[in-house]
Amino acid sequence: MTRQGQKIIVKVGSSLLIGDDGKVRQAWLETLVADIADLEQQGHSLIVVSSGAIALGARQLDLESGGRASLADAQAAASVGQIALSRLWSTLFAEKQLTAAQMLLTLGDMEDRKRYLNATATLERLAEKGAIPVINENDSVATDEIRFGDNDRLAARVGQAASADRVILLSDVDGLYDRRPGSETEGQFIPVVEAVDDNILAMADGTSSSGMGSGGMTSKLEAARIANLAGIELSIISGREDHPLKRFAESGTGTVFRASRSENARKSWLGGRLTASGSITVDAGAVEALRSGNSLLAAGIISLDGQFMRSDVLDILDPEGQVIARGLAEYDAMDCARIIGRHSSELEALLGYAPRSAVIHRNQMVLV
């Protein structure tokens, strides 16, 4: 499954961690921890992204709908459940002479560059000391508007921050099918995906089959796109059986998303962001220029959206409204509006100062 000395992210979903009775699947979890301990002994470095706090807390607080009936219920359940979840992982790792570390992250921690680098530094230091981070979204404070919404994408972003070699998503299915398993027409299993394109995205189903988690195949494909952008291979494998990581190493059964390219760290962070301060729509000529590796010039801009400032992250849209790139603005929205569609030779007279070379420079931009 892995070369020696790899850094591996393992994501565990709620439906695998918690049984239908609302209790921890203790026996299964012990086999997963044994797999992780074996990989650590082989010289790999592991990071766990674990769901389950809301489900655990809901049971303890006797909340309906698994703690997801309202945002207040979810936050309360997460507050109680996170203690239980941390204790669970810490105890099981201690039995294998391993040290667990807890990290609770929000979307803002990954979207803000400074906070992202702080998380990166923490992950690096924990790896140096041989501790295994157990990471979850901080659902006790996250709101519907500012959250990852699922731990698949969180796992991919953690993979970027940790400079991981691979991300493994343990799922209730054994990988990607060209249609949802159980549909009238039997789906074809997809063992290898070279690129997450429109054809692959069309195979996704956005629902969680257990009803317990918040993700689905759509979130897993988005996670694969984020990971691949950073040169990280991502795999979706079944977690229903005991020793899932060992079984994957022996059988190779699962869907592997190949990492075809690796952007630099800043561009990987940009491409993996889930939010933007605004957007710029460009014409067909600009689309071609960007895909050829050029910067975005004012002449190619059709319209703007959002009240952004210089250095804010912007989505770049093609004439059909599809996001084709993401980058850091060199102008604020007000100045940018004054130079839409104008040639570089006109900008100094329009702005009253020496213009910057591009609205978004190619070194501060990533195609998505």
Results as ranks from 00 to 15, higher is better:
283 D>M: 08
15 S>G: 06
131 A>E: 08
258 R>P: 05
73 D>L: 03
126 L>G: 04
113 R>F: 12
267 K>A: 12
81 G>Q: 01
182 G>W: 08
28 W>K: 00
185 T>G: 10
351 L>A: 10
295 S>N: 08
348 E>L: 09
248 F>V: 03
214 S>F: 00
159 G>F: 01
133 P>M: 07
269 W>P: 00
325 A>G: 13
265 A>S: 12
217 M>A: 11
294 N>D: 12
195 A>M: 12
33 V>S: 00
53 A>Y: 01
15 S>N: 14
202 A>L: 08
59 R>I: 07
106 T>P: 04
368 V>I: 14
315 D>A: 12
344 S>Y: 11
103 M>R: 02
124 E>D: 11
345 S>K: 12
207 T>Q: 13
68 R>D: 05
264 N>L: 14
24 V>Y: 01
149 G>Y: 08
127 A>Q: 08
323 V>I: 14
218 T>H: 06
3 R>Q: 15
68 R>N: 10
121 A>V: 11
265 A>V: 12
351 L>G: 05
301 I>M: 13
23 K>E: 12
203 M>W: 09
343 H>S: 11
332 D>H: 03
157 R>W: 01
32 L>M: 13
198 D>A: 15
246 K>V: 02
161 A>V: 06
67 G>Y: 00
358 A>I: 08
258 R>I: 14
50 S>T: 09
64 E>V: 14
218 T>N: 03
115 R>V: 00
48 V>I: 15
217 M>W: 02
336 C>K: 02
300 G>R: 01
264 N>I: 14
81 G>F: 00
314 L>K: 09
27 A>E: 14
20 D>E: 13
192 V>N: 15
272 G>V: 05
294 N>M: 13
5 G>R: 14
